[in-house]
Design a protein around this nucleic acid. Structure first.
Length: 225
DNA sequence: AATACCCACAACCGCATCTTT
DNA sequence: CAAAGATGCGGTTGTGGGTAT
């Protein structure tokens, strides 16, 4: 199987794995555009990267998911939605592809059927303060190379509850960072900056309701593969 | 034994974001 | 500042193995 550029596609064979491993061991990870050439592989850079990250990397756990891992996936998914990379980041040895696959094959059905059950029971008046299942979607952000890469809580369409009297009074935080340590990255309500204490308090309140798991979303340091 | 179906997971693709020029 | 290239993530598809009929 080959693509339009004559690159091989489909399942990897043992020899290819060996070449890729040798290449990564020699040159390290990264510079994926150079990997096919360095390794002597007729594969595209994406394919090489995926193969390493999802299969060949020595950090990968091969055994099936443990109870606590499943529990963690369920909780984190409730908070983060389909941010598989972030969820996997909290599960040592698991890749985002592993988590995503496990979700689709094992957990999705469970969650859907549970929701169906709940739906029947509910039909109650709207929650006043916040919707517990609204997903907060953090996005990766690269700071200067000295700081490495970190993930923060914030992104477009992320509604942060702040002592609201009705449904509408939530702080719609623009696509910026809640990193109080950084002077130019203060969260805001429209153009008005939100004091860090208020921001933290809001998260703290939310954290109490969600069993403090919200804090996982603070400074989820990116794994260095 | 043959076939159909299902499940698990590896791999690909598209696109958004980041970095470099 | 814009364009081009590189990177990484999430959605989706393909495929092989196991099970049921």
């Amino acid at each position: 199987m080959e693509n339009t550029k004559g690159r091989k596609k489909g399942a990897w064979i043992y020899e290819e794995d060996k070449l890729l491993k040798a290449c990564i061991n020699k040159y390290g990870e990264g510079k994926w555009h150079l990997v096919p050439q360095r390794a002597g592989l007729n594969r595209c850079r994406k394919s090489c990267r995926l193969r390493w990250l999802n299969y060949l990397s020595p950090n990968i756990k091969r055994e099936s998911f443990a109870e606590d891992e499943i529990d963690m996936i369920l909780r984190l998914h409730k908070l983060l939605g389909n941010r598989w990379f972030l969820i996997a980041g909290r599960l040592p040895g698991r890749t985002s592809n592993d988590v995503k696959n496990y979700w689709h094959t094992h957990l999705l059905k469970k969650v859907v059927s549970k929701k169906e059950e709940k739906k029947d029971e509910e039909e109650k008046p709207k929650e006043k303060t916040m919707k517990m299942h609204e997903v907060i979607k953090p996005r990766p952000l690269t700071l200067s190379s000295n700081f490495g890469k970190h993930y923060f809580v914030k992104q477009q369409n992320c509604n942060v509850p702040i002592d609201c009297d009705d449904d509408t009074e939530t702080a719609r935080v623009p696509n910026q960072i809640a990193n109080c340590a950084s002077s130019n990255s203060q969260p805001s309500l429209g153009s008005i900056p939100i004091p860090c204490e208020m921001w933290s308090d809001s998260l703290w309140n939310l954290g109490e309701e969600l069993g403090n798991e919200i804090w996982l979303m603070f400074f989820i340091t990116r794994r260095e593969f």
